[in-house]
Write a protein that binds this DNA or RNA. Structure first.
Lengths: 236, 236, 236, 236
DNA sequence: GATGAATGAGAATTCATTCAT
DNA sequence: AATGAATGAATTCTCATTCAT
């Protein structure tokens, strides 16, 4: 967990033990405020990017700037918390899927693909502008970036494992797994809204992505179209 | 072209008449200066993101702030010009490819795919941090976004036309074309450094993308993997 | 009141209820601050004209620039507020006089004249350099100019009414009233320090102005000195 | 004459001896440029006050900034030159009138008044905003202010002389003369356009001013309306 | 002399952060 | 803890003035 913000992390998953553990009202109020602030920050960053001011965010969150600074040491901490919040959610989703795979190994490549596409779609269906902002700042948040990388690697590793099991003859399975996850995640973050939203709803974005992924995982690599020297293939 | 900055656009394609085309020294000096400033801006934004100041940029460009403001009305205009410069380059590349396709229609889907992948890779092989910054600000530059969309649509339309010609039986060719371009462009802009850089260089990014694209264009859509009701395919 | 600056107008007349009227300390502090800033601005503009900087003004007012900008959106707003403050004061004085006239109509032209001269002198006895600055900028503040015009018109109308009552045979009473107010106001704002200060103090400026006004209101218009064609009267 | 600007004063009257004195074309071109620049400056200052920039003025004058600085050392010099130009004109008019008075002494107070009103009206019928700007800056131009004072004093002295001759019994003739000139000049510079322009044209502004002046010069000073202690005359 | 692009000191304005209440 | 007015360093931007051509 990147950094602990007062009065308690508030980001990141926390297993709830059912018996004991009644939170004091004070803690709950704080937790609430942190949530408000992060929601405000999300809205403001989504709307104005880094131009959004801490005062805007406090106003949007319905708290005073002073309160904001009570919980977050500076503006960047807000961004970091937002990123961690997102990663918490994504990690939870991913872990849930991967442990399911461990218990019930998927039986077809199609099932794997469908799961991965679903995971990535669901893990990224919110706040696109914020994601882009964060990624444009990734160099300022090495810890967050590292976490994102780890998460992605974990998914990639499991994906590769199952691919190898189901398609032992597939070439470059590790690279294909990595590639696939990258492609799917990138597409979902796309600046120019993905096809789906611009062409009417008939075949779903997910359908296309699954078709694409499945086809990719079935196709040989290398060059059925042999690589020309000239930059343009049709130049022959 | 969105906005013309003094002393003359300096971005966007410009037909070069080979015989007489001696630009006046004044024009050349200005053009040069605009170029320096944009290079400085690129370096600074690439390094510091929006944090980079106009004074930094001027210094980096080797001119005075005053000169910078002579050519660009404000800091945002720099970003917009950078985006337009990038789009100029991309448009030129795309037009070049598309007119080639019109003269020598590609003969195989593989050739089409290879061309499109090549185009998108080459059009985006520079200044990744800057691209991410720009795309995180896209909402501030509606004209630029519109231009990008148009360019992408143009490529999509041509791609679809040729696909239909070569694979008359392919279902949803328009959507596939759109999908493909979105996927490729997003992947290339990706947040998380593309696979290639993290997996060693052996099979090229382009190889993977071409394989992916080709496979996608050969595969049937719809659900060979029938859609389950439950969120996770492997849950069956 | 042209524009309301936070946290409350602070210029313009305000009815004071004598009993309960405890303003909250917050309001009082803000009001105080606005007053300080305007005083600082007056001093600085009086000393340096438009050359005076907002930083100077803040320093002179004993607040930070940030605070200055908290209350006034820009440098111009300071000037406008100063002008409005002056008009507030003048309006209050004028209204006070005019309502007194309504209750106790003046019994002689001399009394009227004396009142008007007194009003105009007292309404303009502060910050001459500032007044000149403001009037040199009047075209930038159409609202203020309009307000000044209205105020002047109001005085002129009342003056004319009472003149007509006391001197029913006076020709052109409306024009005379307008003329008189213009002449008095201009003289008091005068560029070149008024006579008084350069000729020793014996007969007061006000004495001269009253004599001038009274004489004017007693004299026939038209041409006892018949208008010559030639530009100079003594040219005959 | 305050300061000599290159390439030759260009302000201030210059008697033209008809015989000799053919100016070189170079000198004439310079003279022309200075004139253009001053006209541009007048227009710009009239429109924008001190906000007007030297670049604006050069553009308005149809010359380059460089040329402007060839003839005027800095922005203030423009204002000073403008003021001197105005004073040149006014001085010429005044001298012409006064020498006429010396040769043909005026025979009536009415003639004196008519002459003085005419002089002041004609000497100030241009560029009111510029005059106000200059007067708001008078402290920066002690020489100009001194010149203006001298000119005014000269008129006042002659006026007083002739008044004493024609009305030996008039009290405070010197003060009356000074007062009159101040009042007339101020009125003509008035921010809020003088009556004339707002009430339709029937009795002329000059008629009113002459009536006012004549009446003033005929009236006894002191208090036909005895001065009350209370601030308002009608308060009795 | 003339030009106008270039300069950069300095003015206006912003906004992350603090702190008295 | 909460507040939000106050702060002022940092930034954006202007424009009088210079100087290479």
């Amino acid at each position: 967990m990147s950094k602990a913000y007062l009065p308690s992390p508030a980001t990141r998953t926390r297993v709830r033990r059912p018996g004991r553990s009644r939170r004091s009202p004070v803690q709950d109020r704080s937790r609430q405020k942190v949530a408000w602030i992060l929601e405000g920050a999300t809205r403001v960053f989504e709307r104005d990017g880094l131009r959004g001011t801490t005062n805007d965010i406090a106003k949007e969150a319905g708290v005073s700037v002073g309160t904001l600074y009570e919980y977050f040491p500076d503006k960047f901490a807000l961004l970091e918390a937002l990123a961690n919040q997102h990663l918490d959610r994504a990690t939870e989703m991913a872990n849930s899927l991967l442990s399911r795979w461990n218990q019930n190994p998927p039986r077809t490549t199609g099932a794997i693909v469908s799961d991965v596409v679903g995971l990535i779609l669901r893990a990224n269906d919110d706040h696109p502008a914020c994601h882009r902002l964060l990624s444009s700042l990734s160099s300022s948040f090495p810890e967050v970036t590292q976490r994102a990388r780890s998460l992605q690697d974990s998914v990639v590793r499991h994906l590769a494992t199952h691919l190898k099991r189901l398609q032992p003859s597939l070439d470059s399975p590790d690279q294909r797994a990595a590639m696939l996850v990258t492609v799917l995640a990138s597409t979902v973050h796309s600046t120019i809204p993905p096809v789906e939203l611009r062409c009417g709803p008939s075949p779903r974005l997910s359908t296309h992505l699954e078709a694409l992924a499945s086809a990719y995982l079935a196709a040989p690599l290398g060059s059925p179209t042999p690589k020309p020297r000239t930059p343009l293939a049709s130049d022959r």
